[in-house]
Simulated scan of single mutants.
Amino acid sequence: MNGLAWDDARARRAREWARRQLGAAQEPALEPAAADASSRRYFRIQVPGDGSRIIMDAPEQSEAVAAFVRIAGLLAEAGIHAPQIEAADLEHGLLLLTDLGHRTYLQALHEGDDPQPLLDAAVDALIRAQATVPVDGLPAYDEARLRGELELFTDWYLPCCCGVASAEARRRLRGGLDDLLERVGGQARAFCHRDYMPRNLMVCTPLPGVLDFQDAVAGPVTYDAVSLLRDAFISWPREREVATLQRYHRRARAAGVPVPEGFEAFWADCQWMGVQRHLKVLGIFARLAYRDGKPRYLTDAPRFFAYLRAAAEEQAALRPLVDEVLALAAVPGRVSYAEVD
């Protein structure tokens, strides 16, 4: 997982720290729980007679760990099922967390679980967060930040995967990206998890458990709903996507979440928001491959190009931008992994 060893000095330090926090006489058994695209890792430890815990090991990420602690508190106050923090060492990037179980939504869906109750619970939890979690003090997901994310596509994906110079990519996409940012920037703001997707939602009681929320912001109200339904690792039939968003829209309106009054306008906002996210994710995948030596992420790039095409089919105003993106991306790549620092 993530190319990192699991029985190294970091793991041993985390295990010893957890032992002290728990007051255990012996070091608890430790196993990998998860890794992500960053250097952050998660270990599961078994505590004799007291179940299991999760250790977050995130050295040199003290700000992200502090954000995790703060947002975990906000989610708990809102009634969202997030891990409870039993101990923290912010200086060394260590957290001791309650364990929400072994099965993610993604695993459950791939194993054939009925998706409807999972999606319904995810929608309800999202609405609860958007309706009740205060956004004062959260970073603003503003135009500068959104534009910087789009530049991941022009500065990483197109040059590295397609051989298109960054300056040329920015020039050809400038007008379409400006329009995109204007439409996305006009959306109402709400609590935005930023990674609200099946691999960060847990099958547990109550459903769902919510993970990986340390990057939460005050952002466009459609962002998390789009993240849930246009994921990197699973795609939904259009009928289920529409039905789920209709349910979300109806219940969000009733809860006071600032979505557009009509579903058609909300659906259009989702398409614009989706394109921003899809381009960002493609850029992140390329950066992970070419800068960080993790090429496996690029295997899911075709899914995001399919999402781009779907958004343009649903929203005619997006077609010029998506057509230009597809034209640029069709150029064969001319850069090898070894040539990119």
Rank of each mutant, 00 (worst) to 15 (best):
R199G: 12
R309F: 00
A58I: 07
P159E: 03
D89C: 11
P220M: 01
Y141S: 02
A316R: 15
A72C: 03
L326M: 08
D155T: 00
T104W: 09
L201T: 05
Q107D: 15
G148E: 07
C204V: 13
L211I: 11
E241Q: 13
Y297F: 15
A252N: 03
F305C: 01
A167H: 07
A129I: 01
Q246V: 13
D155F: 00
Y337D: 01
A35G: 15
R172T: 11
E16F: 12
D113P: 07
Q61E: 15
I80Y: 03
V259A: 06
D179V: 01
L4P: 13
V257W: 07
E264I: 02
V133W: 05
L90R: 12
R128E: 10
E313K: 11
P83R: 06
P220F: 06
E264T: 13
S52C: 09
R171P: 00
Y196N: 03
I284V: 15
L100S: 03
Q46I: 11
A330R: 04
C161Q: 04
R145P: 00
D178G: 00
E241V: 08
G101H: 09
F285Q: 01
H193N: 09
R13A: 15
P48S: 01
E149Q: 02
R40Y: 15
A18K: 07
R147D: 12
V275M: 11
I85Y: 14
A9P: 07
A310P: 00
D269R: 12
R199W: 11
R12V: 12
G274W: 05
E314S: 15
H110C: 14
A58C: 11
M1Q: 12
E63F: 08
Y196M: 01
L321M: 04
E31P: 12
A167D: 14
I45M: 06
A140V: 10
L109A: 04
E149G: 00
A311K: 07
A108F: 05
D231A: 10
V331K: 15
A167R: 13
W236P: 11
L328H: 03
R15V: 08
I234A: 13
Q214Y: 12
E77P: 07
P258G: 05
V281F: 08
D341E: 12
Y141P: 00
Y141A: 02
A190D: 06
E324A: 09
A78P: 07
V340E: 01
T104F: 08
F233E: 14
A67N: 07
I85N: 12
E168N: 12
R199I: 10
H110R: 15
R13P: 02
G262K: 14
Y105I: 11
L308R: 04
V335L: 09
L119Q: 11
K294M: 09
F153W: 00
V184D: 05
S166W: 13
A129F: 05
A243C: 02
A190E: 08
D89W: 11
E241Y: 05
A317N: 06
E60L: 14
G274K: 09
A225V: 14
